[in-house]
């Protein structure tokens, strides 16, 4: 059990660190664009001071760009805030669809850098389970990383949540090169530790080129108790 706890903690910290790097990078980009646009307004006013008529349409267009970037930065900070709040309670009643949307948002930059297109397919009905949302985010993140490595030339992964028995199921599809993965190389120690905490199960389906993460409605009582003390 100690090994599981250490692996879970380590994996959680790694996700937290990666998220901070990605979010700070994204925020910096938004700030850099705002700064360039504000600088451009200054440039235009300097030119106007020399007698060139002020182009008000141009100024309005730059203001719109700045507002867009403020909206972008605000959305990035909201995502970080939601992520941090996932640690509020060890056990929470969640809609898996919302969790997938959050993970997709958190991983947007890293997914984009890898050249992969990620699609989150949203079901009409809620897929609610009681689980440890932070640990589940970690597990989804690890599965997504694995999925992105086996997309082949298509470079596209879809994730979807659906009701499964009394709990839920997350499907990662588009795993074109799943058949080439050496036996025993996935799931690794990390995924196994997280699935143990969530009482979850990971299966792969080579024929349908998908990975399935099966989640019960509830988590190991012992772990929840240990983690909260």
């Amino acid at each position: 059990m100690r090994l599981t706890h250490d692996t879970v903690s380590e994996t959680g910290l790694q996700l937290f660190a990666k998220t901070c790097i990605s979010i700070s990078h994204e925020t910096k980009n938004a700030l850099a664009i705002m700064k360039e646009n504000a600088g451009l307004v200054e440039d235009i006013y300097l030119i106007a001071d020399k007698g060139v008529p002020l182009d008000t349409k141009r100024i309005r267009s730059i203001a719109t760009r700045i507002m867009d970037q403020i909206g972008r930065a605000d959305s990035i900070i909201d995502t970080l805030n939601k992520f941090a709040h996932s640690m509020d309670e060890i056990k929470q009643r969640i809609d898996i669809r919302n969790l997938l949307a959050l993970v997709a948002s958190l991983s947007e930059r890293l997914v984009s850098l890898s050249g992969v297109t990620l699609t989150v397919k949203t079901d009409v009905k809620p897929v609610k389970i009681t689980t440890n949302p932070f640990v589940l985010q970690n597990l989804v993140w690890l599965c997504l990383n694995f999925a992105m490595d086996v997309t082949g030339e298509a470079k596209a992964v879809s994730i979807a949540a659906e009701t499964w028995g009394n709990g839920g199921r997350i499907r990662f599809t588009g795993l074109k090169e799943l058949s080439g993965i050496p036996a025993g190389s996935f799931p690794t120690k990390k995924e196994n530790a997280l699935t143990e905490v969530l009482c979850a199960e990971i299966t792969t389906d080579v024929e349908h080129e998908e990975l399935l993460l099966i989640l019960p409605d509830g988590i190991a009582k012992g772990f929840a108790k240990n983690r909260s003390t």
Binding site: A32, I33, E36, G39, L40, D43, R65, D68, Q69
Partner: peptide, 17 residues
């Protein structure tokens, strides 16, 4: 730069210089 708004605005500012 993969940020289009960044690179296009920067290009305009450098052009002005």
């Amino acid at each position: 730069d993969d940020e289009e708004q960044m690179v296009s605005t920067l290009a305009e500012r450098l052009s002005l210089r």
